[in-house]
Simulated assay, not measured.
Amino acid sequence: MTSPGWPAAFSGVRLHVVSGKGGTGKTTAAAALALALATGGKRTLLIEVEGRQGITRVFDTAPLPYEERRIAVAPGGGEVRALAIDAEAALLEYFEMFYRLGMAGRTLRRMGAIEFATTLAPGLRDVLLTGKVKECVTRTGRDGRYVYDAVVLDAPPTGRVVTFLDVTRAMADLAKAGPIHSQADGVVQLLHSPQTAVHLVTLLEDLPVTETLNTVRELDAADLRAGALIINKVREQWLPDRSVAPAADGRIDTARVRNGLAAAGLDLPAEVVDGLVAETVEHAVRVAAEAAALARLDSELAEPMPRLELPHLLGGVDLGSLYELAEALVAQGVHVRQTSGASA
Results as ranks from 00 to 15, higher is better:
205 E>R: 08
213 L>D: 00
220 D>M: 00
212 T>V: 10
218 E>L: 12
209 V>Y: 00
236 E>R: 11
179 P>E: 02
200 L>M: 11
161 V>F: 08
196 T>R: 07
226 A>N: 05
216 V>R: 04
204 L>M: 11
237 Q>L: 12
236 E>Q: 11
208 P>F: 01
248 A>V: 06
181 H>F: 09
223 D>S: 15
248 A>N: 10
172 A>K: 11
231 I>G: 02
243 S>C: 09
205 E>Q: 06
156 P>W: 01
199 H>V: 00
234 V>C: 09
218 E>T: 05
189 Q>R: 15
227 G>W: 14
156 P>V: 12
187 V>M: 08
174 L>R: 14
174 L>Q: 13
205 E>G: 02
179 P>Y: 02
223 D>L: 12
164 F>L: 13
244 V>L: 11
248 A>R: 15
207 L>G: 00
202 T>P: 00
204 L>R: 06
247 A>Q: 09
221 A>W: 12
195 Q>N: 05
185 D>T: 06
181 H>A: 00
154 D>E: 03
193 S>C: 05
189 Q>G: 08
205 E>W: 11
226 A>C: 13
230 I>N: 07
229 L>W: 09
206 D>A: 14
235 R>P: 04
227 G>T: 01
168 T>V: 15
243 S>Q: 09
164 F>E: 12
217 R>P: 02
182 S>Y: 03
210 T>F: 02
161 V>N: 08
203 L>Y: 04
195 Q>M: 07
192 H>R: 15
177 A>P: 06
246 P>M: 05
198 V>H: 10
200 L>P: 08
204 L>F: 03
212 T>Y: 08
233 K>V: 12
234 V>R: 07
243 S>F: 00
223 D>E: 13
155 A>C: 05
189 Q>W: 11
232 N>M: 01
231 I>L: 08
160 R>P: 09
155 A>G: 04
190 L>T: 03
187 V>I: 14
157 P>W: 15
190 L>G: 03
200 L>E: 08
164 F>P: 13
178 G>M: 09
177 A>T: 13
187 V>P: 06
158 T>C: 03
241 D>L: 14
178 G>R: 05
225 R>L: 00
218 E>I: 01
246 P>G: 03
185 D>H: 13
168 T>S: 15
160 R>L: 07
240 P>G: 02
162 V>H: 07
169 R>F: 04
160 R>I: 10
225 R>M: 01
236 E>M: 05
239 L>Y: 09
187 V>W: 04
191 L>N: 00
246 P>C: 05
182 S>V: 04
186 G>N: 03
223 D>Y: 09
180 I>A: 12
183 Q>A: 14
215 T>Y: 12
203 L>G: 04
217 R>S: 14
179 P>V: 01
166 D>K: 11
214 N>E: 14
158 T>F: 06
175 A>R: 10
230 I>P: 03
215 T>W: 12
164 F>H: 11
182 S>P: 03
219 L>S: 06
221 A>T: 12
